[in-house]
């Protein structure tokens, strides 16, 4: 049965998945963390009360989270074209992946920071800490275990979303399973792609859990 498996193709598809998922996880973190911090500190009674910024950001985040991913892919064709000069391929597929996951992760960061005891922040204020110091040395380190858990969840969902990247020719294991497995009536291809995806998810979740637990000193 395994004779039907095109290992070169699987290898290629695995690399594409890894590429898309790691790039988009990186950028989801890069955009999501500041966005999550802003969502918290601009709210009433917090460090930098800005109701207008708060409600605008919240709306944008909700819009991106409400649009189904597959529609997001189509919507962001022009954006990918503008930034990368192409709307096809693995790199182009990371644009909708980032746009879909960054707001999702931002909400997780928001929740993680909100869990911190307000008194700790106040203690830092009483020592004369600036807003920036409070964010960098209190809010983010104290929320780090939860932020890492959130990033793990985001990364796992990115693995599953990346299967849809086939639409823009992004390739990857999901696309390989669909085209060379399902459509080509090649069950072993379908099976192997599935197995690799499961291993990948297990690996990401395992590493994430370990890291989160390791730094959690509560």
């Amino acid at each position: 049965m395994l004779a039907d498996v095109d290992w070169a193709l699987i290898g290629q598809a695995s690399l594409e998945t890894l590429y898309m998922v790691s790039i988009s996880t990186l950028f989801a973190a890069l955009f999501g963390i500041p966005l999550g911090v802003l969502l918290v500190i601009t709210e009433k009674g917090h460090l930098w009360e800005q109701p207008l910024i708060q409600s605008t950001l919240s709306l944008i985040v909700n819009i991106f989270r409400a649009v189904p991913f597959i529609v997001l892919v189509l919507f962001l064709f022009p954006v990918a074209n503008f930034i990368l000069n192409t709307s096809l391929g693995s790199t182009a597929a990371t644009i909708p992946l980032i746009a879909g996951s960054a707001p999702f992760f931002a909400r997780m960061v928001e929740t993680a920071i909100r869990e911190i005891d307000r008194g700790v922040m106040e203690a830092a204020q009483s020592m004369g800490a600036s807003h920036f110091t409070i964010i960098r040395k209190v809010l983010l380190p104290e929320a780090l275990p939860s932020i890492i858990s959130g990033l793990t969840v985001t990364c796992v969902s990115l693995i599953s979303f990346s299967a849809m990247a086939g639409i823009v020719g992004g390739g990857g294991l999901g696309d390989a399973a669909y085209r060379f497995g399902f459509q080509a009536y090649n069950d072993s291809m379908l099976f192997i792609c599935g197995i690799i995806l499961i291993i990948l998810v297990q690996l990401v979740q395992g590493i994430g859990d370990w890291m989160s637990k390791h730094i959690d000193k509560r």
């Binding site: 204020q125 000193k217 509560r218």
Partner: peptide
């Protein structure tokens, strides 16, 4: 100015990390 005024709290408010 606050750096020259210490404060302690009922629930300590230490950084657990």
């Amino acid at each position: 100015r606050r750096q020259k005024m210490g404060m302690i709290f009922q629930h300590f408010h230490l950084l657990w990390s």
